[in-house]
Simulated assay, not measured.
Amino acid sequence: MRIPHLASTHDAALASALQAAIDNKTKPQGSLGVLEFVAHRIGLIQQSHTPRIDRAAVVVFAGDHGVVAENISAYPQSVTWQMVENFLQQGAAINVFARQNDCALHIVDAGVNHEFGEREGLVARKLGPGTRNFAQEPAMSAAQCEQALQYGMDLVEAMPVDVIGFGEMGIGNTTAAAAIMHKITGIAVAECVGAGTGLAADGILRKQQVIERAVALHAHAHADTPLEILRTFGGFEIAMIVGAMLKAGERRMVLLIDGFIVTSALLVAAKLQPAILDYCLFSHCSDEHGHRRMLQHLDARPLMQLDLRLGEGTGSALALPLLHAAVNFLAQMATFSSAQVSEKSA
């Protein structure tokens, strides 16, 4: 397996030209705020003075987690496959938001503990009926982790899109994401763990203790490189997102990052290829405890603060109109000279 190599998007001449074009629109400089940053970043990603967003997709990866045996979720594991069925029936929030934003939606069975059979709209990439319980042993084998990365890369290779958002579904995956966050960032486990699907204070404490025990269990197994952390604590869906992100960056797509679990995948991807952060826009700051610290660690600038913590890629779908607004103002707004509007006095 080849890890894609990502070059920085930095191009001094293009960056200067894009900034000049943004500043010359009929508005005070900086008055469109974060939209100006977004237009500039998309231009650098696409290496274009006139960036466009014609085709967008959200890919939702679903997988189960053996660590649910430790009673770390408010919901039973069966909810994973039931929600996949809901996606396929067009009944979930991500279906609604993708439809309203004319966004393609792909549902991937990365490793759900359920046999769906051949289903229209479901991409079958099952690596098993969920990962193993990382509180007792590594979540996946090295071969499974590598295959998950490759599946993610292959899926994105076949997608003709400009912008790709990532979503996930998997009971137990906030526990996996919190463990990854702790191992990658060094932030204390207590600051990484949150309510997930709705745990009360005692459930959150239990989740914290499970992760701390697991970290101690694997302390002598050299689980400190990005891929070993992913293999030991991650999920099949998280690993596929890592591979998908790396390939999307290599193909110069805009990566629209969702919430806590998706950002945990980005932590791994950024350790493997730091330049991937040049290709990212962060849709929102999740209400899941720990996500704000993740974003601070990445020096990320979220586009929205809506107190979301649903996952599924919902934040990414909701942020798409902001990306369209950014490229549209750059393409369609008049300049001071074309509109014959007086510029600011010196």
Rank of each mutant, 00 (worst) to 15 (best):
L6R: 09
A7Q: 14
A12R: 12
A13L: 13
I22R: 09
N24A: 15
R41F: 00
Q47H: 13
H49E: 13
H49G: 10
P51F: 09
I53T: 05
R55K: 15
R55T: 06
A56C: 14
V58F: 11
V58C: 13
F61W: 13
G63W: 09
G66F: 04
V67L: 08
A69D: 15
E70I: 09
N71R: 14
I72N: 08
S73Y: 07
Y75L: 15
Q82Y: 03
M83K: 09
V84P: 07
Q89W: 00
V96I: 15
Q100T: 14
D102E: 14
C103P: 02
C103F: 08
I107Y: 06
E115A: 14
R119F: 10
K126D: 01
L127H: 06
R132E: 13
F134R: 08
S141D: 00
L149W: 03
G152V: 12
M153D: 05
L155Q: 12
M159K: 03
M159V: 05
P160L: 01
E168K: 13
N173I: 02
T174G: 05
A178L: 03
M181R: 01
I184K: 02
I187A: 01
C192V: 01
K207E: 05
V210P: 05
E212N: 03
A214F: 02
H220E: 14
D224C: 05
T225W: 12
F233W: 02
G234P: 00
G234L: 06
G235F: 06
E237M: 01
A239H: 02
I241M: 15
I241G: 01
V242N: 06
M245K: 02
K247P: 00
R251L: 14
R251P: 00
R251G: 00
V254M: 04
L256D: 01
F260S: 11
I261G: 01
A265D: 04
L267P: 05
V268H: 07
K271I: 00
K271W: 00
K271E: 12
L272N: 13
L272V: 12
I276F: 05
Y279A: 11
F282W: 12
F282K: 03
F282S: 05
H291T: 02
M294D: 00
L295Q: 02
P302L: 03
P302E: 06
L306F: 11
L310Q: 05
L318F: 04
A319N: 06
L322P: 01
L322R: 02
A326Q: 11
N328L: 11
F329M: 15
F329E: 03
V341Y: 10
